[in-house]
Design a binder for these strands. Sequence first.
RNA 1: GGGCGAGUGGCGGAAUUGGCAGACGCGCAGGAUUCAGGUUCCUGUGGCCGCAAGGCUGUGGGGGUUCAAGUCCCCCCUCGCCCACCA
Length: 819
Amino acid sequence: MTYDPVEIEGRWQEAWAEADLFVADEQSEKPFFYALHMFPYPSGDLHMGHVEAFSLADAVARFARLRGHEVMNPIGWDSFGLPAENAAIQRGADPKAWTYANIETHAATMRRLGLAWDWSRRLHTSDPAYYRWTQWLFLELFKAGWAYRRDANVNWCPNDQTVLANEQVVNGACERCGTIVTKKALTQWFLRITAFAQRLLDDMEQLQETWPERVLTLQRNWIGRSEGARVAFRIEAPGLEPEDVVVYTTRPDTLFGATFFVVAPEHPHARAWAAAGGVTEEFDAFLQRVQRQTDVERQASEKAKEGLFLGVYAINPVNGERIPVYAADYVLMEYGTGAIMAVPAHDQRDFEFARAYDLPVRVVVAPEGAELDGATMAEAHVGEGVMVNSPGYDGLDWPTAKQALTRDLEERDLGEGSVNYRLRDWLVSRQRFWGAPIPIIHCPECGLVPVPDEDLPVLLPPTEEVEFAPSGESPLATHALWSKVTCPTCGGQARRDTDTMDTFVDSSWYYLRYISPGREDVPFDAEALRRWMPVDQYTGGIEHAILHLLYSRFFTKALHDLGHLDFVEPFTRLKSQGMVVMQGAKMSKSRGNLVEPKELLAEYGADTMRTAILFAGPIEDDVDWADVSEAGVFRWLSRLARLVDEHVEAGGDGQADEELRRATHGAIAGVTSDFVAFKYNTVIAKLMELTNAVSSAFRERGVRGAAVQQALETLSIMLSPIAPHLAEELWHRLGREPFVAAQSWPTFDPALLVEASKQVPVQVNGRLRDTVTLPVGASRADAEQAARESQNVTRHLESREVVKVVWVPDRLVNIVTRA
RNA sequence: GGGCGAGUGGCGGAAUUGGCAGACGCGCAGGAUUCAGGUUCCUGUGGCCGCAAGGCUGUGGGGGUUCAAGUCCCCCCUCGCCCACCA
């Protein structure tokens, strides 16, 4: 058998390891290239999604190496997290042992895939040597005022018994386990990502060309900048001093259409107003009812809006009108100021509420000739409402009215232009065990005291001393001694913080640790940092478009401001790959549609698997494994191996073959640009095409020797980022010294352009009539003459009068005649 | 409700961005090898007409611009993804 993948792959994997081929050389003279992929979480063994992600990452790195870069292509594991702890709860496994056993399983399969990782930089976020610096980073943020504690009504997962960040709540359910999330009032740690909201938006400018538009859009929507105004309404309540309450609105231009005022039930003043209005009992019942609801219930779109008139009134600052104040469940305390002016004619939600509670609808008239805004209810419900103008703003279109009103509010000191963001601060504390302990000491005398640098890391206690069963309390708090500590400031009795950090903290800076993973004195070596950062090419799943990428960008900016980094964006270029599914559904054990990489590796080998998954379609699209033809890819690789063997055996003298040379150089040009554009499916198609060309030259035209040799060598080099083992093997069988991975990318021969001739179609009135051979770069006159002289064309022209001749250089001649 | 994107053979998908539509692979059909199946190797393969040469037609539907449209413009249809009481 010419192609025995298992034997070939094992042999070359050993040879590569022996030669330390993929260890990045810090002393290199070549330009440095940091190829990064999103490091895996170690649960079980690798699945097909990993195979795709790693095939992509490896192709990127190997191609960069062939193009003459010194490449760093590191590997590590995001090894803190809930699944390890759940395994401990469900099966009594030690989360640490479970995690590190999985890592070894991963590593073994990775080696079997022949991935060109730089294993010398391997890291695990659950190693004390790593999380020591995660804790350092937390303290840096703490000292800068960007990590803080506050009471909050937080997202609580009743199943995982821990709080969740907003970003980890998907459709009101826990991102991990799918349980409906409830609310709980707790004191928690937050990171002040909102302080960076505008910069996170602005700096996307520099990613515009190099990140997928889709990811940028998702991030923009997530940050959710909106422009409007803050306007003060005076609240008049019997027995209370008049008081200004600020609302946020994106539509100050509809101020004249406000017919009532709404606050969130949780609004700090709501209860006092209810008391003044004489509805305390009703209010308390209402508040209780609202708070018992989960977010999903409260936000269900088909649900009727509920509210309560508080018996007090607000004064509209622009017209002095007195409007009733309601508490309603559709106004959220977390956004804006927790209070709104309701303009039912111009807002769907206000309109629904107005209908339910029989409140007036008043349309603010759009100026003559101005288009109605998309959100307006005016057109649909004009019959129900009264039409009003905005006195003094007539004749202005909406945007101008908005500007003018905002300016006037500012001048009259009634309000101000204001920008709001949907983004909230990042809740990072978790009541779980398997994570980096928050390095803070709670001292009754000194308050929150950072653990001194020399006492880092704050180590997790041995797992057997901890109670994992969820109790709503941190497992670390169940340990008899762990949290007891003396205050580093005053020496008194104090208590360690028993929460651990969200694992997204660990993964938001790992790319910096890869730079110098061995350093014990600093998180990253400053000089090496300048060599490698920012990352040249980042690859990973689209599912991280928001969380991981946004947090990493935030950390980079924070570290920049603290003087640790001299750049503000961590990832210069980003490519996101799609998911691997099976028959349209996500692969999973329970669905029974799992395809195990192990079985395919044994049957076809790593090269076939890697090639097949990249050949399936554009890398950013989802791949349906049902459409993947590993047998077809295997046939191609076998055919190629056989062709090489036959060529080597046949020998022969060095005849040049123009056709083969052109096919080879055409492939070089096409494959190179496709590699640059991540079009691996067409890269592979072109390599197959070249294989067919070599095969027909060899078999049908009897070409022997140097011409075939050169084509096959070129093919081997171009194949090596995709199917590295076979490429290496063919290179070897062709009589070259190892390693193909150390060669240079073949260059296209421009001389070919000058010498080459092209088959150019000739049309008469747009219909193909003939094909003529013209030198590349031929002039219009040459082309026209050749076209007119061709027999088929002469026949079709007959005696018709030629109106014009269209000449698209190297592509087409079209002779247009009078009808 | 808002935002983004996509519709090309039986299937996955190509098309140098306005220039020979369907590259490459799968599948299918016929043939060779084989006792047979599998493997492997040829040949064919958008549809319609034709023995053939060849012709007509064809990129969700309709209209338009152009010598030339899968690609650009207008209208319509269908599907997918993301966000969503965010004021």
